[in-house]
Amino acid sequence: MSVEVSDVYDLVCETLLENGGLQLGILTDDQFLDFLDSVTADFLRKTAIVKDIFTVAATVDVSEYAYPAGIMRAEAAFYDNAYIERSSRAMADLDTERWPRDSSEPETWSEDRQDAQTFSVSPPPPDSGKNITLIGIENVIPSSLDTLSTITEIPKSFTFYLFAGVMNKIRTTDGELKDDFQANYFWNRYMEGVNLAKAIMGELSAEN
């Protein structure tokens, strides 16, 4: 079971004493959805609980590639299904000054010295037709989020913590609903959920 936007919405309405839906106009449905979108993206990035496998076609002599749609951050990379280590361009420079020009089977990948939508492999591939496979955090937020959407892959059990994140945003926004006490409280509860998910992922990533 996945997070239903309507469940988060109902919790927010209950807490703002607007049972049955946001009607007073102090907070609108669109504002709620913007907050939820932002909180969910943050939760996915911080916890890395939802991952998928992505592929990019390698091109001869090209070291820089755009991240495929749907990936938020890569955690592991493979060239032609063989694992390549994460590194940095600075390290590649130290290893060999000619790496951007000398093509060979890629041995490392990196994200530094480029925009957030780009990664690079080093050295650049010697031929085209092979794949670069990335395992990374998947963006599972629907592109047209509405109150009837489902955020698939995030287990329903984390609904409360997304609600806490949304309430933090509501309570920190200038206006009638601003409330420092609750903003602080809900931030701590949101981070409790983030840390809980990270602890769970830590157990899965730990050696036996």
Binding site: A48, I49, V50, K51, D52, I53, F78, N81, A82, Y83, T133, I135, I137, E138, E153, P155, I200, M201, L204, S205
Partner: peptide, 26 residues
């Protein structure tokens, strides 16, 4: 096992031995 994605029982002459968590959903 850098080429684990390509390896099968036949290529390694091994029974399936490990599961590799990929997040909590795969």
């Amino acid at each position: 096992h850098p080429r684990w994605m390509n390896e099968t029982n036949q290529s390694t002459r091994m029974d399936t031995a490990c599961w590799i968590p990929i997040g909590i959903t795969k």
